[in-house]
Design a protein around this nucleic acid. Structure first.
Lengths: 188, 188
DNA sequence: CTCCAATCTTGTCACTGACAAGATTTGCGC
DNA sequence: GCGCAAATCTTGTCAGTGACAAGATTGGAG
């Protein structure tokens, strides 16, 4: 209170972003309205537009922030290609809202500069991991894509409930490790 | 003409489905309205509701039809696990609209009986391919999930433009084969 | 203290999904 | 052929939405 009835919110941008993340988590990237975010943040229906322009603007900000955290997570696991795969899946599951927006470019402005920086940073880490994983020269590109596809596919299938295992009591990370091991040898 | 001004459309259900597929292809599973489909089909704004109930009903029908065609495509390639992976990617690229709806259960009624039949049929073919691919016993489950994840991830990344290659003149199928080969040995 | 710019509100418009009620047509029993 | 029930499509309506315009409030630089 005290702040509760002030005209200016104080940190509306963050409040809207957090509301958006919660909404995406609950009902997907399209299951909510800008006006609902405004209500959650306790402001008028047009307030969010000032900070983000429109709905795509909100999702652009979500995607940009997501790619930054994603790049951070991947960098933390860099050096160990195997661990990078696990980190990829971990991020998708732990930050589902970010992940579900990031890889759906039709929802946001894919040419946003800030977003591009973070996205390329994540891409660079992935490429480095792929290089370490590659059995021989010349196969680096294919190996990188394969590792990326494997992690991305597993995460996607898990998130959308396509894997029967995601309905049970199986631990995601354990299953992810098992799947990665089956493909990329016994690399620890 | 002749039929052009009749009160009854004649085959509205199919017309709406085709309009939906075209709309998904153009602007994603959320980039269109029911009323737009009605306009494309040349009927009143409430006509589609009679056949599908609501928007989720339309997408349920799209997903069900998609899983049927998907299962057909996979069955055609069954026997050859390697070819199954290629068929998976081929289907995603050639029938992008179906694919983009099928693996987004929050868009439709995932408990639709007709849909479940087709989905399980596709799942059975995938499981069979996984079994043939498995190096040893006990790893069947992980191998199946790995192969599925690889194909699904590659298709998803390709479709949403995350792979730099999807911007150039690279042939999808060729790249998919290369990626599959790098993972599952030289299996022809 | 003043005034400017950032922030937020109010008001509005066309569009949408969903539903209700009515009009038209088809086809089936006979 | 005939009548009638059911299927098909239309018209009308309502709250909710995204986007925009114009105005109110506030904090802060000078």
């Amino acid at each position: 209170m005290g702040k509760a009835e002030s005209y200016h919110h104080g940190n509306l941008r963050r409040a809207v972003l957090d509301a958006a993340l919660a909404a995406v988590e609950e009902s997907g990237p399209s299951g909510w309205s800008l006006r609902e975010l405004a209500r959650r943040a306790g402001v008028s229906h047009a307030a969010p537009a000032h900070h983000f322009g429109d709905k795509a603007g909100v999702l652009t900000a979500v995607a940009a922030e997501g790619f930054e955290r994603f790049a951070d997570a991947l960098e933390r696991a860099a050096g160990d290609p195997y661990g990078s795969g696990v980190a990829y899946v971990r991020f998708a599951v732990d930050h589902r809202a970010y992940f579900e927006v990031m890889f759906r470019p039709e929802l946001y402005r894919a040419d946003d500069p800030e977003l591009l920086v973070a996205r390329d940073r994540a891409g660079a880490v992935l490429a480095a991991s792929g290089r370490k994983l590659s059995p021989g020269e010349g196969a680096e590109r294919a190996t990188t894509i394969a590792a990326w596809s494997l992690a991305h596919g597993f995460a996607s299938l898990w998130l959308n409930g396509a894997l029967p295992e995601s309905r049970g009591e199986v631990d995601v990370e354990e299953l992810a490790r098992e799947v990665l091991r089956v493909v990329f040898g016994g690399a620890e």
